[in-house]
Design a binder for these strands. Structure first.
Length: 357
DNA sequence: TCTGGGGTCCTAGGACCC
DNA sequence: TCTGGGGTCCTAGGACCC
């Protein structure tokens, strides 16, 4: 029988920090930004269960977190540490004889044709704990959606199984937002159609969805609500489609020449990084967030085709920047470069598509 | 709750071509 | 010629996730 399992590390970022600071175990810990909650424009990346008990949530401003939980210990985010811990977790998972599909720092799908998924889950959980001292929860399902949701039921540190048989009993009364892929906007649109629970959505006539959602969503929503999901496992290493970097300034930028130099630097820096991975840049996008919070994105395909030249990309980024009227204080600047997929020609330089009939 | 950073995918409209 | 029926490319924006 084919089983999909989902490994989900428990409060991963905080857990990695506590490994380095064992004295913090069992305490309210909040990780985010530079770890200084007195500075504005920083948010919570991860909060320990003890901090969550005070209402601290990821995405919340650090200042708010500090107000809600006076005794919390605040720590700066340390991507390199999470990268390293994640690599150990995934290597451990890959040491089992099953396909593994990594989903970010702290999640992975695995499994396939396994006789005893609970046994596999127990062994994986024990191996991860032994290798990293980190706790994982594991969901078992007949597809990825079921496995992913099962992992939430398994938290913390447990194993939980969902099947088509148990799905309605577990999910029918839950809000549509419990489904992976249904966010606040979609939930609101569904609410306007009086579709509030997963059960409502599973039983609805797709014809009522079609005017509000596109054909894809219309097909997907009721299927997901009935517990259907992807059963494939791709072991292909993840290939980035794009790479971006953005900065929120502690105080707004008002000098357009500073804005321009910052954009040029971001673009050149990103290009240098992706070139190290043997990638070429095809498009460049510039993101500007004006005070108080108006965000715009403008982009351009590189006229000269895919390039590895940082100066070409930064010149293009400046061209894109000209699409903005920089007449207001700038709160955030970002640059994204889109990457040529390896093994794909970009058409530039290809001979004579002169065609015609 | 004055609201980060890094990603992916989908849709829609306009330009342009045959 | 006052008007069609595709198709593709490009950009903007929306939505979602961790």
């Amino acid at each position: 029988m084919r089983w999909l399992l989902h490994l989900d590390m428990d409060q991963f970022i905080v857990a990695v920090e506590v490994l380095r600071r064992p004295d913090l175990a069992g305490k309210p810990v909040v990780v985010g930004g530079d770890g200084d909650p007195s500075r504005p424009r920083q948010v919570v990346a991860s909060a320990s269960y003890e901090a969550r008990a005070f209402g601290v949530r990821s995405g919340m401003p650090l200042r708010t977190a500090a107000r809600r939980c006076r005794d919390a210990v605040f720590l700066a985010t340390d991507h390199a540490a999470y990268d390293a811990a994640s690599a150990t977790v995934m290597d451990t998972l890959r040491s089992f004889d099953v396909p593994v599909e990594v989903w970010g720092w702290d999640e992975a799908y695995f499994g396939g044709d396994v006789a005893d998924p609970f046994r596999l889950a127990r062994e994986v959980r024990a191996a991860v704990l032994a290798a990293t001292d980190l706790s994982a929860s594991i969901g078992i399902g007949e597809n990825k959606l079921q496995a992913k949701i099962a992992a939430q039921y398994a938290k913390p540190g447990g194993i939980f199984q969902i099947t088509f048989g148990s799905w309605p009993g577990l999910m029918s009364e839950r809000p549509v937002s419990a489904l992976w892929g249904v966010g606040p906007k979609t939930a609101k649109k569904l609410d306007a159609l009086s579709l509030r629970t997963v059960g409502d959505l599973a039983a609805c006539d797709p014809a009522v969805l079609l005017p509000v959602f596109g054909p894809r969503m219309t097909a997907w929503l009721p299927a997901a609500a009935a517990g259907h999901g992807d059963v494939s496992l791709s072991t292909e290493p993840w290939v980035a489609r794009s790479k971006s970097r953005e900065t929120t300034f502690p105080t707004d930028l008002t000098d357009p020449s500073l804005v321009a130099s910052h954009v040029a630097e971001l673009a050149a820096g990103l290009t240098s990084e992706v070139v190290l991975d043997g990638r070429l840049v095809t498009h460049v996008a510039v993101k500007v967030r004006f005070a108080p919070f108006f965000t715009y994105l403008r982009s351009m395909k590189l006229r000269e085709g895919a390039t590895a030249d940082p100066s070409v990309v930064s010149a293009a980024a400046l061209l894109v920047l000209e699409k903005f009227a920089l007449d207001r204080p700038v709160r955030l600047l970002g640059v994204r470069v889109d990457l040529l997929l390896p093994g794909v020609g970009d058409g530039e330089g290809a001979v004579g598509a002169t065609g015609g009939d």
